[in-house]
Structures are given as C-alpha cells and as structure tokens.
Amino acid sequence: MNPTRDPMLVVVGASAGGMAALKELVAQFPPDFPAPVFIVNHMGAHTTGEALVKVLNESSSLTCAHGHHEEVFKSGHIYLAPSDQHMLIVKRKILITKVARENRSRPAIDPLFRSAAVAYSNRVIGIILTGYLDDGTSGMRAIKRCGGVCIAQDPEDAAYPDMPQSVIANVGADYCLPVAEMGALLTDLVTRELPENEPVPEDIVIEAKIAQRVLSDLPSVEALGEQVPFNCPDCGGVLWQMADGKLLRYRCHTGHAFTSSALLAQQSVKIEETLWVALRMFEERQNLLVTMSKTEDKDNTSSVSQRAKDSQVHIDRIRAMLKATDKDSQSVEMA
C-alpha cells in the first residue's frame, strides 16, 4: 500500500444465503490483490462467525480474519465484521463499535459502507450480495454520492434477491452481474487511476459520526430530517424521517436507524411480543376468576363467572390476531 496515496477499498454486504455467495466471491481474488476487503454478513448475536472465517480462508488465497478495534488494515487481507458489533473504517484503521443497531442488525452493512465513503470517498468499491429487505442500500448510496463504484449481484443469481434489487431500484448499480464474474471486474477496478477524492456531503459525515458514537444528540439528528409522530420500536424514542433519494429512512437520537421496510418489520416483531404478553395476562386473569368462582358465595358467583367469560372473548380475539400475524412473523424471522 503506497503511504502517499489513499488505497482502494472493497466493501461487501451480504445476508441470507451470504456464505455461499461470499465463498464464491473470495475464491476469485488473486494472491496479490492490491486492496483490503471488508465484509459484513448478517449474523445473530449468539454466533461467533468463526465458521464463516474458516470457510473464507479455505476458499481464498487471501487471509481472512475478524476485524479488531483500531487495527491497521492491509491490502490483500479480508476483514470480517465480528458478531454483534459494527465494523467501521477510518483512515488506515478499523473501528469496532457496539452502538445501536441499524436496520435491525449488528453488524449492519450501512455503517460499514457509509464510514468507508467518508474516509476514502471515490476510492471505495461497494458490493451488495444476496439477502432479505434492504440493509446496504443507504450505505451504497453514500458510496455513489462520494464518487465510488456500486456493484450489485444480479438478482437472478442471488438466493435471496431483495437486497440487490433494492440497491438497483433506489441507487442504480454501475455493474449488475453474477458473483462468478465479479473477480475479474474487481481486479480491473482496483488498478484504475482515479481523480482526487470528492468532497463528502455533510449528512453522510453526520451519520458516520453517529455510528462511531461521536454524535448522539438531538441537533445532529434534527439536521438529518424531520420529526414524525411515531416512536423507535427498539428504545421508544422519537423518530426523525430522512429522505435518502427514493429511500425513506428513520433515526432516533440514540442511534437506531431503519429503512421504512426494516421499521415495518421491527414494528411487527414488537406487536407480536405485546400480543403474547396480553394473552398471558388475560389467561392468568381468567384462571384467577375461575378459581374465585369456586370459592365465592352464590351472590358473587354469577358476576365472577361472567367476567371469566368476558376474558375468554379477549383471549380468542388475541389468538386470532396472533394467527393472522404468523405469516408476517415468519418472513421477519427469515430476514
């Protein structure tokens, strides 16, 4: 890496079906690939990500490892975001943070892409692979606005086409192709001569600083959008609506961020949780009333029995609502 010139960076985002796509992608990198590669693959907080590190090391001639906080990155290495933490990029270094989730995910793709765009402007190549919903779309737009390159997996090649389709529809891809054809393209792109870095828009800088936990105050969020009359489903805080091109997004002042589809999905999760709590409380109430009806004197038995029947009406309604939302819940879990 030439210390007098900013390097090219490759940032990659994947979700459902990501292991197979990433394995195919990294297998195409030559041993002397002249750029660092940073990967976010959505994973649960309970997983370690070691299985993916092992698969990528077995598949690629490059060394793959989890990124570490304040690690100086090197060309020809692959850095994978660790479980339950965001991976960000600043000049020459990696930052690992455990701030608020974005799009219901940690690690999330948008913070990585956005931080790369702020730090390296037009020297960033972004790749979106298979996955549900639209994490990565806002980050890819930040890359495009800073002069970087946008690559989307051909949706017909993706096991789950939502994420690349969202990028194509909301950002516009410079290249849309199957994973099998990305290696040759990347080898060409990272060796191209580029003009000087372009200025970074202020809103992208603000969001990148929020992900670093440098900013988490009301004026910062108010500079990004307008307050709306509903709340963050994760913390209960007020949300601000941001227009990001054709994409609607929302932020709270503690740092949670959502696209409209991610917000809707998280609201569905919270609604289901609330319904289960309500069902438990009504069933407990009914059980207590039934017990009381067996011990109360005859004058009160009729009233208590009626209240138990009323509780059963509410129980039946809540069960019906839970059945009606079951399909939505299953799709949210897969995302």
Rank of each mutant, 00 (worst) to 15 (best):
G67L: 00
H68L: 06
S105Y: 13
I210S: 01
A173W: 02
E207D: 03
A208D: 09
M281E: 15
P219Y: 04
T301S: 09
C64A: 13
G13D: 07
P7C: 01
L186Q: 08
L9S: 01
Q330D: 11
Q266S: 13
I315M: 06
C235W: 01
R251W: 03
M242T: 03
C146A: 02
V205Y: 02
I78D: 08
D162F: 05
E196I: 12
N57K: 07
T191G: 08
D203T: 04
R285G: 10
Q227V: 15
T4P: 00
T130A: 12
G44K: 14
L248C: 01
D84H: 07
E284T: 13
N2R: 11
A45I: 05
D217Q: 09
A116T: 00
Q227E: 15
E272W: 06
T47Y: 12
R213Q: 12
H66G: 07
Q153N: 04
S166K: 05
Q241Y: 01
Y79R: 02
A243G: 03
E102Q: 06
I94L: 11
K294A: 14
D328R: 13
I94Y: 01
S166M: 04
K294G: 15
E196K: 13
V332N: 11
M87T: 08
V167R: 05
P233D: 06
A335I: 02
H68S: 06
R192V: 07
D154Y: 12
V124N: 06
V55H: 12
T187D: 09
G147I: 02
E226M: 14
D326G: 09
M8T: 11
Q306A: 05
D135P: 00
S83L: 10
S302P: 00
A108G: 13
T130Y: 12
L95E: 04
I210N: 01
G49Q: 05
A243R: 01
Y175E: 10
K323H: 10
G139L: 04
D84V: 01
W240T: 04
